[in-house]
Structures are given as C-alpha cells and as structure tokens.
Nucleic acid binder design. Sequence first.
DNA 1: GCAATTTGACCAAT
DNA 2: ATTGGTCAAATTGC
Length: 264
Amino acid sequence: MKKVMSAPGFAALEILAKGRESAEALHSMLHQQQLPEVSTMPHELWALVEQILHCCDRALAALSGGTGGGACKKRNPEHGSPVDLPCTTRSKRLRVRGGERGIQVQKKWTMEDGFAWRKYGQKNIHGSKQPRLYFHCSYKDDSGCMGRRQVQQSEADSSVYVITYFGEHTCGQNSSRWSSCDDDGLVVNRETPDLCNSPEDEELQEGTVNVAAELLEQSTPVLELMSMSSPWLEHLGRCQEWEVGYSKSLFNIDEFIDIDSLLQ
DNA sequence: GCAATTTGACCAAT
DNA sequence: ATTGGTCAAATTGC
C-alpha cells in the first residue's frame, strides 16, 4: 500500500525545515562566536546544535516516506541462471519518476547526514555535469530498511550537495553512528517540486478520515527523534538572555519544540 | 576474507 | 528511442 503524506504531515515538514534553519542560524552564530555565553560552555552548545541538525535531518528523512513497495521485476539472466529467479526484495526497479516523492536538502561541503548509507549506483544525468549518486540504507539487508537517497553536486556550486531522500527509515539507527562533521553547513531544506503537487492530491482530499492514522503511522520515528531532541531544544530555549538578534531563531525553535503537539 | 565501492547491463517509464 | 533507477559481478581497500 502506498503511503500518502497527510496535510498535517506537510505542516510538520515545514516546521522541521524551519527548526532546522533556526538551528543552522545558531550554528552560524556559534561559528562566528557572536554569543557571549559561548565562552562559558562552548562544547555543550556545539553539541546542542549538532544534535538539532542531525535530528532534523533524520526526521525529514523519516517523514519523507513515499514508497510502499511494488511489483518485483525479474532481471533477465545473462550468466546461465534459470529464468525464475527468486524475487525477495520489494525495492527492485522502483522508480522515482512520475510520483515518488522525496525531501530535498542542500548541504555545503559534506553529504554526511548522520545516517549510514551504502552506495549502490552512479549515473551521469542528461544535461547535468555532475553525476548522481544512489545510496540505500546500510541496514537494508539487516532490517529491511527502505531508506534511500540521491546525492548530486550542485551545478552552480560544486561545494553544495543536493540530497534527496526517498523511502522510510525503519532501521532505528542509533546516534552512536552519527558522524560529527566539523563543517556541516546545510544551506536550506525544501520540498521537492512534486511534493505538494502530485497526482495523489485527490487521494489526499478523499482520505481525510484516515489522516490521523496515517500521520501517526508515518511520524512514529519522528516522535522518537523529537523526544530525543526536545531536552536539548528546551535547553536552548532557556538561554533567552541572548541578544535580541537571536529572538527570531528562538521563536522558531519554540515552535519547533512544539512539534510534539502537532504530531500527536 | 570480508565489506564497501565501482561500473556496465538491465529494464521500466516516458 | 531515450533516460534514469537498480542490480550484481568485478574490483578495491582494510
């Protein structure tokens, strides 16, 4: 069954993106050492921001679920194998074109996002100088996690990696596998153009009765991530003696903290 | 020896 | 026919 991103799901994505922008803003402030408090607890603050950034990335990836499996196609045997190859993986020949939705993130200097990925393909894309790299979750075989991502360097700025997430992370990777990147400069989160404009919009309208159930199902991993990140976010919110210039970020973080109520 | 990556082939969608 | 997503054998690295 194909999952449909509910309207509250879109709202959650927007807030996640906004929260991540705020975290990124704080990240920049810390990087520029504009905060007087930095001198007193730099490591703690840096850890907070890093956690926010990683949590947002993971939440966005988790919420981007769009595939629900599909017909498993057989590969034409060319090395003497029998025709009736066993068909065990649901993800074979899944296509993004024509409907599968993803969350697109742009990151500067690094394509690291805290998840463990294994590269399974690379293609030169027509009209693009940069090849597109294909990754699936490292735990795909172990736990059947269907998380995938595509990474392509920006045409305009080769230091920018455009990462598009597909599928749903169900492997429950723990934070010990999160990598810490010194220069983890995410530029902007945005939904892919077809995210809000898919042929499934009608399905969305008809399915209002199931919205709550769908959202709950889709957002379970997000709730876990939020429960993990909330203490750090709340800690940030308490540091409101920071200068006025940071009030907007704090406001957005407050809203971000409240995502629990939106998802529940 | 094992795991990860590379890369050409396969095949579905357009 | 073309394009792009995935597979899987070959290669590479530890």
